[in-house]
Design a protein around this nucleic acid. Structure first.
Lengths: 349, 349
DNA sequence: CACCAGTGAACAATCGATTTTCCAGAACGT
DNA sequence: ACGTTCTGGAAAATCGATTGTTCACTGGTG
């Protein structure tokens, strides 16, 4: 193992390597980058590699990027990193980018929205080749516009009014699958607990819910509550439900995190799941089986969502003409039955 | 609102601004950076700002960083981003860095370990001013060494043998608090379910557990099981416990995620918590109250852990001499009582 | 002997901003 | 009239790597 160069003191540059190997920087650069268009003697080539190794030479990414005007870095603007659902998307993005030799810079959409100087720092030209925006619902139009004005961008699960390529999950199919699972168990009185107002993903899931009900044909009642994406939103929605004179026999919750809150409130109210009421949620996550009751879920390909978004962006950077919208249908939504769903009790109303 | 410059076509450079404002690049740079050491007429100054605004000038971060040889970016190498505990640390790091005008680059420790070319890309000189390493337990010595050879680094919750400044939580105090909570409820037969072998955080929590038992003086039995950090590790540990002829009356679990699995297995085995057995876990998280039973936890300042690590690194970058180790004692570990702990049943053995 | 091709490598421009050094003209004092 | 001090600003070097162009040899040919 070669002696480690001291951390203090300037790091060796290409010129240092060139000087020690007694060649020009040109040759050193070309040899170290395996430029096929250059002819060098084998011993020269070997000497250069040796010196680079001995000196512990690492090329300066800044200088290289500046010259080539590409940084091999993409930005990921994400809202609510605390949600495991979102980190799954992040992993997908990161995986694909890493495979392509790109590094990923993560920023928080709220911080960026609040403080425009941070947006500046983040966007500082040259640092990023492109951006993936996963900013949740609403109020981020200016951010999207600002970013996409400067850089190639791809939207994830966001509003489609923006003139920016977007990638989405098949929310409608997910909503439909969750609902038809309940219908096939015999439920007809099914409530939908959605996400926040204006969320396109929630609306998509709700339209799947409605479609499934309509297709079932048994005079179903459409019954949707608007909530939010957090566990406390689920708690609030469940409390609202409990204030009604009669409960539905089943609930579709648009999000597994929200559903956590729903289950906990039902438990403390003495409502038994699935005996008194069935619950199914959209999205799977590690904690679904550890909740108040192991929760039946519809798994959506979040990792692939991230991968696809990254792939789209990388394709654009490589010069391909991007499709405007991509709907991820493979793999399709997948039902994971656990203990929170069952047939309605005979005689339940 | 000024017309947006087209995304296509080269972005304006400082020279473009200077030319349009009829000054030299020197002056343009100084004016736009508010350099106090330069004297310019007010109208010149105004003109430069106007032109920059009109052109939508954004300085090139690469060029600037290259010249100043600092990138205002720090790297965060993190293992298991899927854990909400770790994303909390991440948020702390990011918050502190953003306040100081730094952006954060996130990488996955496993990927970096597996593929050294990715390590190269990540470290590419100049791109990063420093690195925070939150790599979990074991097997990352080479990574730590490699990184810290090139850049100022700070370790989070990691092994202390490395000659690198490190920040840790007060694991001992947390283990002690969890255990003495159980002792004060009247438990004497308390089992400890730890993390993976070689994890310093787990060892710290265990030593707190042992200390509390010893201090209680009532001839306690020390009884530790080694598990891991995942929910499935908790499941395995609980199954092991169930194979015993007799259960302890209480369990301290070193991690709330692991505890999720423990609770779920106990539930499906028909063991009632807290009637038959009490469970307390270290670390709080949003899902703790939504588990099979709302879980009593010991909250540790994870966000502050991230902030402190970032602060230490930023201090080093600012030229301060770093302390070797920092133990975070403020805020101290905090018990959050929920429903999973109670006094042992009279007559329980 | 002059010419040409091929080999192996160096020169110099460039990416875009920062920064050290330097300078022309105006104002001022004696 | 002459040196001095401000004012306002420009020239050029620099950060480190990449890359299109050019150049000095050597050996073989006509």
């Amino acid at each position: 193992m070669p002696t480690a160069p001291d951390k203090r003191g300037p790091a060796p540059t290409l010129r240092d390597v060139a000087a020690r190997a007694d060649v020009s920087a040109t040759i050193a650069s070309r040899v170290l980058n395996d430029d096929p268009s250059v002819r060098v003697r084998d011993d020269t080539r070997a000497r250069i590699h040796e010196v680079a190794q001995a000196l512990g030479y690492v090329p300066n990414g800044l200088a290289r990027s500046l010259r080539k005007s590409r940084s091999d870095a993409i930005g990921l603007v994400m809202h609510n990193l605390a949600s495991p659902l979102n980190t799954t998307v992040l992993e997908g993005v990161r995986g694909r980018c890493a495979d392509a030799g790109y590094v990923t810079l993560v920023a928080d959409s709220d911080q960026l929205t609040v403080d425009s100087s941070r947006l500046r720092t983040f966007l500082a030209r040259g640092r990023l080749d492109g951006v993936i925006l996963h900013v949740g619902y609403g109020h981020h139009d200016r951010l999207i516009e600002e970013v996409s004005r400067h850089l190639p961008a791809v939207l994830v699960n966001a509003d489609l009014t923006a003139p920016v390529p977007a990638v989405r999950l098949d929310d409608t199919a997910a909503g439909r699958l969750a609902t038809s699972h309940l219908i096939s168990l015999g439920h007809t009185d099914i409530c939908f607990i959605g996400g926040p107002e204006g969320s396109v993903t929630s609306l998509g899931r709700q339209s799947g819910y409605e479609a499934a009900l309509e297709e079932s044909g048994r005079q179903p009642r459409i019954d949707a509550i608007r909530a939010g994406w957090g566990p406390e939103d689920g708690e609030a929605a469940a409390l609202e439900l409990l204030r009604r004179p009669a409960l539905p026999t089943a609930i579709v919750v648009a999000n597994v995190v929200t559903a956590s809150g729903v289950l906990t409130v039902l438990r403390s109210a003495g409502v038994r799941v699935p005996d008194d009421i069935s619950v199914v949620a959209i999205h799977d996550a590690w904690f679904a089986k550890h909740l108040a009751i192991p929760l039946t879920t519809v798994q959506l390909p979040l990792f692939e969502l991230g991968e696809t978004a990254a792939g789209l962006l990388l394709g654009t950077l490589a010069g391909k003409e991007p499709s405007d919208r991509v709907l991820i249908t493979d793999p399709p939504p997948h039902l994971i039955p656990r203990e929170s769903t069952a047939a309605p009790r005979a005689g339940a109303r």
